[in-house]
Design a protein around this nucleic acid. Sequence first.
DNA 1: CATGTCACG
DNA 2: ACGTACGTGACATGA
Length: 421
Amino acid sequence: MTYRLYEVLDKKLQAHPELINILHNIEMPVARVLTSMEENGIELDMDFLDQLGVEFANTIQNLESEIVDIAGQSFNVSSPKQVGEILFDKLGLKGGKKTSTGQYSTSESVLEKIDHPITDLILEYRGLSKLKSTYTDGLLKQVNNDTHRVHTSYHQALTATGRLSSTDPNLQNIPVREDIGRQIRKAFIAPEGRILLAADYSQIELRLMAHFSQDHALVDAFNHGQDVHKRTAAEVLGIPLDEVTSNQRRQAKAVNFGLLYGMSEFGLTRQLGFSREESRSYIGKYFQRYPGVLEYMERTRQVAREQGFVETILGRRLYTPDIMASNKMVKQGAERAAINAPLQGSAADIIKLAMIAVDKILPKDQAKMLLQVHDELVFEVEESIADELAAKLTEVMQSVLKISVPLIVEVGKGNNWDEAH
DNA sequence: CATGTCACG
DNA sequence: ACGTACGTGACATGA
């Protein structure tokens, strides 16, 4: 069956040299690298994880009794349906937004807006339950007991953009943003005599936006090693770089992320708590200062309409079937996906090139590639060669493909994954 | 199995 | 008037 597929698919491929290149020079070599990473696995400190789970369990139990006390009746706090009924029917709290199925919404964004002691407790309960069920308990169930290591599966032909995905367990969504969740990362360790190295591409998608759009101000910011979010704030607000406040930088950062996602006024409004008018004005000023970015977005929509697909930097095709949809929302969704896809997909191309190149220079027995998290690679390395290897990795990852702005890699080392950042 | 929620880049 | 930022996976609930 596989051979019969080969005959049909290979004939189709012959018309497209860039796709042959991606198959033979990227996906097939990457497959071998992924196989070793899956076999390698990563060591977990099971005692530490277990202890963390016990602490979470205690807190969860205390939270539950406080919540039930306030509610005046016992109920399952893990049930969104029951939480909705308690909050909006029993306690009569305001804000009873409904989901598409008519149930009360009790999502984080809804509960955050309600000023009542019970919603704070429910959110804390939810957060800890998530950590316990998915990470402390969940990861421990996946450990290979001979090696004390977890072995993920990487899926190479799943996403719409060319990224990998990771399952059983998913090691691409280990907590990092909050202190409490980041404790989980301390359980990812290296054996005695070895350490973990984590190497991250800095702002890779925004750098690709600079490359594709050739926008003068964006390219200039990266070429001068500026803090790009700070520069955005200064440009849009028309103030000097050193007068940008941390809040102005935060807002500009949200706008830059919005760009990568094909930003809508509404999306930005929701993210920043701006009024609709403020968002419109901010976006308007942004595009005055970054006209190349606006042109990129318009050009990408047009390419998607004309060809039915957009491409990454290496020519990987990302199909956009809904780009001509008659339903406006579906069509606009396809446009946003089309704008994002070359950026996310080209970043995926670049890190795959890096994985192939780095794999070739890793000293066998002294270093192993363990994890890929979209813009980050994690290695387990003999302590004695760590610094030397870190420098080599950085150089290889930064030079694997030339674009209009520098590719910057930041590398850290530590006894666990948290310390390595 | 669908839904709601929430973890990541 | 409606409903919207891109790409993923795991878990608990409840039908």
